[in-house]
Write a protein that binds this DNA or RNA. Sequence first.
DNA 1: TATTGTTATACTCTATAACTATA
DNA 2: TATAGTTATAGAGTATAACAATA
Lengths: 123, 123
Amino acid sequence: MRISRRVRFESTQLVAPHQLSVMARLEDRALTPRELAGIECVSPPSMTRTVSGLVERGLVARQDDPLDGRQVFLSLTAFGLLTLKETRRKRDAWMASRLRGISAEEREVLVRATEILTRLASE
Amino acid sequence: MRISRRVRFESTQLVAPHQLSVMARLEDRALTPRELAGIECVSPPSMTRTVSGLVERGLVARQDDPLDGRQVFLSLTAFGLLTLKETRRKRDAWMASRLRGISAEEREVLVRATEILTRLASE
DNA sequence: TATTGTTATACTCTATAACTATA
DNA sequence: TATAGTTATAGAGTATAACAATA
């Protein structure tokens, strides 16, 4: 937890973590607010609020669904995509500077640990 | 981050994470609100609030410093210590059930990764 | 009548600024 | 005058309940 907190605070200053997570979901394809709320395990009103913040900042765009007037599609703007990539670049640069001081053998241990934990988390 | 979130939500239901962290600091010795605020990287008013919640629930006790009337010492109550141990027990049980399915060799990888990350986080 | 999204309202955790009491 | 703690107030992020529009 301490390590996770450190990574969050030192590497994701451009956009808040929960906002960045939503942006990453929209990278591949447009989603509705309801879909995003489900994916992020958050209530629909909460997602409305998160999305509104992103729309105000020009990172995400709303588009009405022509087939179903109740629905809205959300997608990344060009600026949003750029911001997402820049944030990742900064995070990776921070992490790379940390990893520079360790041996190849230690890096291999971290890679293997990541695989194991990812498997455990998905069970 | 995903793994850290999962551990928090599934294993620390008795007391909120930031409250539990304060309780763990008080396990060994009494501390003042200011010391706690510094350790937890939080503002003094924020610590006042966190501590007040713990005092109201009977988990932590306030004691006036007889030498300096401005200061207050905070310590775990017997109930607080019990709650801390019970929370750890639940968390460990959850984690143990996860780790049961992996090999001794994989567990060793996780132990080594923890050592490496702890070292990197403290630099 | 059911579903999508939003608004209204409230709770928690955080912060800064102002206040009280003590040194 | 400086320090410890608290209170006052505000800003995020979260939730549930109520509402409007559409199916």
